[in-house]
Design a protein around this nucleic acid. Structure first.
Lengths: 207, 207
DNA sequence: CGATAATTTGATCAATATCAAATATCGTGG
DNA sequence: CCACGATATTTGATATTGATCAAATTATCG
């Protein structure tokens, strides 16, 4: 949803040419930015994975977010002069860099773009809240099942034999769910055994 | 941060008078809105607690969010005609209702307000992401400790004996952390025993 | 075809949820 | 100001469940 929708917003405008965005390649472990650096860009992940984290006084660090393919991040760069955390590739990654000043300038002159982008942000908020409340479900089975049901509502409301296309690895889904991959596989099996869903290839149907 | 900051944004404008906002009282269990109803307002909680949830085809429902004092919710009402979930008080509550059309109109004519509100939304996103990554910390001790450290960074960066004022019940904090209250109390004790923090009354200091 | 990653199943362990119960605290009405 | 009820806090005992370690199988991608 995110990098894509942002890009299509930008394509709608004539003023925002190629000179205001470019793609950077990062090898695993490379830093995209560090705290204190000028917040020149907002980003969207083309491929790979970026960890956002902060150092704590005691030497530890805390993860703020793990951004995956097609996610945008550091939107706050639109409103601050500096980055306030680290961004580091945890896989070889390609990242779209969008010039924050140019984008900001565009927002300042184009009120309708402004509202469109606000809608994108509001959507992200809804999505994040929904992910957060997923974590309140203790049972792995229930959590996975609810996640699957969410996927349906996002894509479609009416189709009868509820079909979900899984376009990424179960391991990464386990990650998003805050469960170990082993438990996810076992839950899938249990849900299938109890007739709650059926799998074939990369499709899951809920019953 | 949220209802307050939204209010102060609105106060900055002359056009947005009292006629565009009012407070509703809800008794425990009362519905604020239901799916399909016209999305007339965005809301902020003055006191109490509101559950946002959705019905699923199978008769179950899923919680999308639990909004607490000073949080805003249903910002999406700015961009859609109808609500898409239930909002129901789970305590006696007072809720500020802000007319979505009026606010939207204001946003459309006041670009700088638009950017300010975007900044609020971007801040919410940061906060949500940070809460989400908290849940990735398995150990109750670490999770609680990290939460406490986060509270500090939000309020202040420099004060030496890091002091956190706990202005709500540990039970509700346990909730937010996705832990049982018992575990939170035990973790507090353990952290105190191992000299990582000190408590008195409603203050916690990190060492 | 070989290498790498993903999926799958098993066994065990550790940590948190849960149930129970006692104490402390707070707010309210008398 | 006090009594009382409701809620929050605290500690103990136990059970459940998901994490973790291991290893085999399958899929995927040059």
């Amino acid at each position: 949803m995110n990098l894509d929708s942002l890009q299509s917003l930008l394509e709608g405008t004539t003023e925002f040419g190629k000179q205001h965005q470019h793609i950077t390649s990062l090898t695993n472990g490379a830093f995209l930015f560090r705290p204190g650096e000028a917040a020149r860009y907002i980003f969207g992940i083309v491929s790979g994975q970026i960890h956002l984290f902060r150092d704590l006084p005691d030497g530890h660090s805390i993860t703020l977010h793990t951004a995956r393919a097609n996610e945008t991040f550091a939107e706050a760069a639109l409103f601050t002069k500096q980055y306030h955390c680290y961004a580091r590739a945890t896989e070889d990654s390609k990242v779209m860099c969008i010039d924050a000043n140019a984008f900001r300038a565009l927002l300042e002159q184009d009120n309708s773009l402004c509202l469109d982008y606000m809608a994108v942000l509001a959507g992200q908020i809804r999505e994040l809240r929904s992910n957060l409340s997923l974590r309140d479900i203790r049972s792995a089975d229930e959590r996975l099942l609810t996640w699957l049901k969410n996927q349906v509502t996002i894509r479609d409301d009416a189709i009868e034999p509820v079909l979900i296309v899984i376009d990424r690895t179960w391991t990464s889904i386990a990650d998003e769910l805050g469960l170990s991959r082993e438990v996810v596989y076992r839950s899938l099996k249990k849900l299938e055994d109890t007739g709650k869903l059926k799998r074939n290839h990369n499709k899951v149907s809920l019953l």
